[in-house]
Structure formats: structure tokens, C-alpha cells
């Protein structure tokens, strides 16, 4: 198990080149409006992003994909790939996430020889599927025999730590403030993972109006350092 955990760590590393560092998921709109300007206001944003958006989309999907893989129900996995994409109404975050998913898939394909990746790749090439990082990540976690909730936790961690790195550059925050944020987020991440286990499938895709609006607004931002 120890070796496998390290294998999953590799995907959590912010140097794992998926392109996630060029996306702010609406954070940049808040920074430009000066509503996020320091560590405290960033923590507030991060908390809402995790608990009001991420758990209902990527988080819940990760759990459901893992369960579907255990039942060898690939149809369900492809359905979740579609739902994850079409529930993402802001175009930049939808297309950005899709690109990250594709790049992540390409990378793990060269690292692991797992048949399901090949199938996912073929479906994407034929435009039957979109590609999503939460699905690729969960496939790896499942393949490595890492438990369901640990896989979800690590996925959330990798997303949050990349966002913190982005905030450090964009707000900007000091490196120490960034690390403090990641440390302070350990409990919220564990709680979010726990909550995901108890969510109902009907909770899928709930969005918080302000967050979504800021992601849509980003498309009309002229000067930007992030693609979403």
C-alpha cells in the first residue's frame, strides 16, 4: 500500500503538468474586484469553492466513479463524464477542465497500462466523452487499490493545493501564507470528504450563484493571468 500511496502522490504534486496552474475557476474575478485580497479573504473563497461547488461536482463524481468502477459499470462512468461537463455552465471553466482532464489522461497513459484509460481515450477521440480530471484521478486511485475516500481526499487536496499556488501568484500572498492556508485546510478537506460519502446522487451539480457568476464574468475580463 505504501508504494501505491506514493504513486497517487505523484498526481497530487503541483508540478504534475496538467495545466491546472493556468485556471483560477473564477477566483481572478474576485481578485480584480478586490473582494479577495489577502489570506483571510482567500480562505473564505476557498472554503465556499470547496464546500458549495467542488464537493457536489468533482467530489461526488469521484465517489460515484469509484463505486461504478468497483461494479465494473463503465456506462455509469461515461454518464458521469458527461454530467460533470454539462453541469459546468461557465464555458471557460468547462473547457479548461476538459483540457486538464485530457492532459492528465495522456500523462497517466504513459505511466500506467490500464485498459480503461485506452477506452476513455478512444471515447474522447470519437467525441463520445469529454475528459475530466476527477475521473482520471479516480481511475488511478482505484487501479492502485487506494480506498475510495482516500482517493477523493487526495483529489480534493491536489485541486486545493494548486489553487493555493495560483493565489500565491495572483493576489499575491507570501509563500508562508500559502503554506499556512494548505495547513489550515487539512480539516476542511477531511470534513468535505466525509460529507461526500453521505451525499445523495440527487445532490449532484449544485452550484452556488455567486461563484458561478464570477466564473462566467471572467470571460469578459480583459487583463488576465488565468484562462478561467
Amino acid at each position: 500500500m505504501g508504494d501505491n500511496i506514493l504513486s497517487l502522490f505523484q498526481l497530487c504534486d503541483s508540478s504534475f503538468p496538467t495545466g491546472a496552474f493556468s485556471h483560477s475557476y473564477g477566483l481572478e474575478s474576485y481578485i480584480q474586484e478586490d473582494r479577495v485580497h489577502d489570506q483571510a479573504s482567500f480562505l473564505q473563497w476557498l472554503d465556499v469553492y470547496l464546500n458549495e461547488q467542488l464537493i457536489y461536482s468533482d467530489g461526488l463524481a469521484s465517489r460515484l466513479v469509484y463505486e461504478a468502477l468497483e461494479e465494473n459499470n463503465l456506462q455509469k462512468v461515461w454518464k458521469l463524464d458527461c454530467m460533470l461537463t454539462v453541469q459546468n455552465l461557465p464555458r471557460e471553466t468547462r473547457e479548461g477542465t476538459q483540457r486538464i482532464g485530457e492532459r492528465m489522461l495522456k500523462l497517466v497513459e504513459s505511466l500506467y497500462d490500464v485498459p480503461v484509460f485506452l477506452e476513455y481515450r478512444e471515447r474522447i477521440n470519437k467525441k463520445l466523452s469529454f475528459g475530466h480530471p476527477a475521473i482520471v484521478f479516480t481511475m488511478i486511485g482505484h487501479h492502485l487499490g487506494v480506498t475510495k475516500s482516500t482517493t477523493t481526499l487526495y483529489y480534493l487536496y491536489s485541486t486545493i493545493s494548486t489553487l493555493v499556488q495560483n493565489a500565491v501568484r495572483a493576489i499575491p500572498l507570501g509563500q508562508t501564507a500559502g503554506q499556512k492556508t494548505i495547513q489550515q485546510f487539512q480539516v476542511p478537506l477531511a470534513k468535505a470528504t466525509e460529507k461526500i460519502q453521505s451525499l445523495d446522487e440527487d445532490d449532484f451539480g449544485i452550484v452556488s450563484p455567486g461563484l458561478e457568476l464570477s466564473q462566467m464574468k471572467h470571460e469578459r475580463v480583459n487583463i488576465r493571468i488565468f484562462m478561467s
Binding site: S41, E52, Q53, P209
Partner: peptide, 25 residues
């Protein structure tokens, strides 16, 4: 027959602070 839009809004003032960042602001 292909799902193209999935839009899920759930406003829940009973448990959420609606005025907070990211909510109704």
C-alpha cells in the same frame, strides 16, 4: 437524446449564509 445542459440551483437559507461570498452576495 444526449444530455446537453444540467443546471442545478439549490438555495438553502436554512443552513447557509446567503449574503456570504460566493452565495447571493
Amino acid at each position: 437524446n444526449e444530455l446537453a445542459v444540467y443546471d442545478h440551483v439549490k438555495l438553502n437559507p436554512a443552513t447557509k449564509n446567503m449574503d456570504g461570498l460566493g452565495q447571493m452576495e
